[in-house]
């Protein structure tokens, strides 16, 4: 199926960024993720698709230990970021989340100025030595979030005053301000109109030159458009993982076929 990738942008390396082995997640009695093994590549967009409740968001949240905040949630198995276990006791979840950034379904800017929204992360991680340094970090992040031109004259205005699509790009800028290595996106476009969606998708394609991006989406067409690898989850198991071009033209598993072709299954 290599011929299906002829439109993919050439990238120099396809090293494994995140390797998950035998991951199981329980919410109390409920077994949400069942023995998932997956290797997520660097500088690649990986899409997680599957019906509601299939565990794709739960698994995504394991990748930066967001599930730590849920008391009844129990994660077992190994998740390695660059070969290091992120569930190791010595790993500080706050530091981890600076490396593994996250963008959520609903744009959630802090009730602060646009500038402070972006500066918040770099400030708590001490990434800027002085004001000029911070200005540069903020501008760079906003540019990378493809929103600089729209907000450069109103950095002191509240982030909540932006449109939905702008807010989501602000949140992406905020996520990339701490120079993460991995960007997790949980349905980043579900609250956006088609134009804003296209802008965010274009941005995702830009971001993949530098980061490993993992996106959970209910829109199969979005998964097809933005990702190079697709993982299909069903009832807590990872049913199929492969090149997006192959998954959408000739999936191996009949469950994947039923789901992506819109059949009951």
């Amino acid at each position: 199926m290599n011929d299906m990738q002829f439109t993919d942008r050439a990238v120099d390396q396809k090293e494994t960024k995140i390797a998950a082995h035998g991951v199981n997640v329980h919410y109390g009695e409920a077994h949400a993720i069942k023995d998932v093994n997956v290797e997520i590549e660097d500088k690649t967009v990986t899409a997680f698709i599957g019906p509601s409740g299939c565990g794709k968001s739960t698994f995504l949240r394991c990748l930066n230990r967001m599930n730590d905040t849920i008391d009844i949630c129990n994660v077992t198995g190994n998740i390695l970021l660059d070969g290091e276990d992120i569930y190791d006791k010595r790993v500080d979840p706050v530091q981890l989340r600076a490396k593994v950034g996250m963008v959520f379904q609903k744009p959630n800017p802090f009730p602060k100025t646009i500038y402070d929204n972006v500066a918040y992360g770099p400030r708590i991680h001490g990434l800027a030595k002085n004001k000029a340094d911070m200005d540069e970090i903020v501008e760079k992040a906003l540019r990378r979030g493809a929103i600089w031109d729209e907000v450069k004259d109103r950095l002191d205005k509240p982030g909540t005053g932006l449109s939905g699509g702008q807010q989501q790009r602000l949140c992406i800028a905020r996520a990339v301000a701490t120079e993460p290595e991995v960007l997790l996106m949980d349905e980043p476009c579900s609250a956006l109109d088609p134009i804003a969606t296209a802008q965010v998708e274009e941005l995702i394609d830009e971001l993949r030159t530098q980061y490993s991006v993992v996106i959970v989406t209910h829109s199969m067409q979005q998964a097809a458009r933005v990702s190079q690898k697709t993982a299909f989850f069903h009832l807590g198991t990872l049913v199929e993982f492969g090149h997006t071009g192959q998954i959408f033209t000739n999936p191996e598993d009949p469950r994947t076929e039923s789901y992506i072709t819109g059949r009951i299954g």
Partner: peptide, 9 residues
């Protein structure tokens, strides 16, 4: 309909 997989084929 943006057909996929066997529908597309």
């Amino acid at each position: 309909r943006s057909p996929t997989a066997s529908d597309l084929r």
